Simulated scan of single mutants.
Amino acid sequence: MFGEDLKISATLAAALGVSVLFITGVLSWQDALNEKSAWDTMIWIGLLIMLASKLDEYGMVSWFGKELGAPLEGYHRLTVYIKVAAIYCYIQYFFASATAYISALFPLSMTLMVAAGIPPFTAAVAFGILSNINGCLTRYGIGSGPVMFGAGYVTQGGWWKAGFLMSLIYMGVWLVVGPLWWQLLGHV
């Protein structure tokens, strides 16, 4: 909690905390080895978060904006809404955390929508809702996903299949029913 003041990163604080648990005997090395699903989760999440930050660092987000923005010119705003929202939703597969995903793509996607003439409030609500679909898409999309997956009740393939099917239902609601409702309200 005083990491910033003491110039200690969260990673170093966590490592120090685990070290203290080992040194004091609260946790044995065998206890740590027995938690295979926890180690699996930590390794996967760590790698995926690193990958997401590198994609942003190497300019994937700005490239995505340039590549997507130009082809959208001249389309009706409802078409832009559907295309940008669908891409925003399904690109979540490439991000390890909702925070990294939203921070990287929310501003870019909002810019594309507003440039197409979609009211900012409507676009913000749509992206706010679509930002939550990542919980069903992958086991690493939200913080609780790895814990639920680690319980062992579903296979990775089963999770991805069920998540994709649920996303189709959500997308039908938010990309078909939603725009019609917003139009009825006079917001689109």
Rank of each mutant, 00 (worst) to 15 (best):
I45A: 08
A104P: 04
Y75S: 11
T122V: 10
I49K: 02
S62I: 03
E35C: 10
Q30E: 14
L112M: 09
M60E: 00
I118Q: 11
A38T: 03
S97P: 02
L68H: 06
V84P: 04
I118Y: 10
A52P: 02
T111Q: 14
I118C: 12
D56H: 10
W29F: 15
A124E: 09
L72M: 03
L72I: 00
L27M: 14
T79E: 09
Y101K: 15
I45L: 14
I129G: 01
F64I: 05
L105D: 01
Y90P: 04
D31T: 05
I118A: 12
T111C: 08
M60Y: 13
I87G: 12
A98S: 15
H76F: 11
Q92S: 15
A38K: 08
A123P: 08
W29Q: 09
G65L: 01
K66T: 01
D40N: 11
V61Y: 02
L72H: 03
A98L: 15
E35Y: 11
L48G: 02
A123D: 04
A98Y: 13
Y75K: 13
T122Y: 13
L68M: 15
I87L: 15
Y101M: 14
A96D: 01
A70Y: 13
W63L: 15
N34R: 12
Y75C: 09
W44Q: 08
S62M: 06
M60S: 13
T111N: 14
Q92P: 00
G117I: 05
R77G: 02
R77S: 10
S53R: 12
F121M: 15
M42F: 10
T41W: 05
K54L: 09
T79C: 11
E57P: 00
A100L: 06
L51K: 03
F121D: 12
V61R: 01
W39D: 00
C89T: 13
A115Y: 10
L51Y: 03
S103Y: 08
P120Y: 12
Y93C: 02
L78F: 12
L48D: 00
R77E: 06
V80H: 05
S28L: 07
A116L: 08
L105N: 03
P119A: 11
A32V: 11
S103L: 13
L47C: 14
V125S: 11
D40I: 00
Y81R: 05
I45W: 04
I87T: 12
T99R: 07
A115G: 10
T122C: 11
V84E: 08
A32I: 06
T79P: 09
P71E: 04
L112A: 05
F95E: 01
F64E: 01
T111A: 15
P119G: 09
A123V: 03
T99Y: 12
I102A: 15
L105G: 06
L68Q: 02
A104L: 04
Y88K: 09
E67A: 15
T111W: 07
G65P: 01
Y81L: 11
C89W: 06
P71V: 02
L130S: 07
M113T: 04
P119Q: 11
L48E: 00
T99I: 08
S109L: 03
Y101Q: 14
A98K: 11
L33I: 04
S62T: 10
I129K: 05
I49L: 12
G128F: 09
I118F: 11
Y88C: 07
A70C: 04
A85K: 08
W29D: 02
A52G: 07
Y93L: 07
Y58V: 00
L27N: 03
Y58K: 03
E73R: 15
A98R: 10
L130G: 07
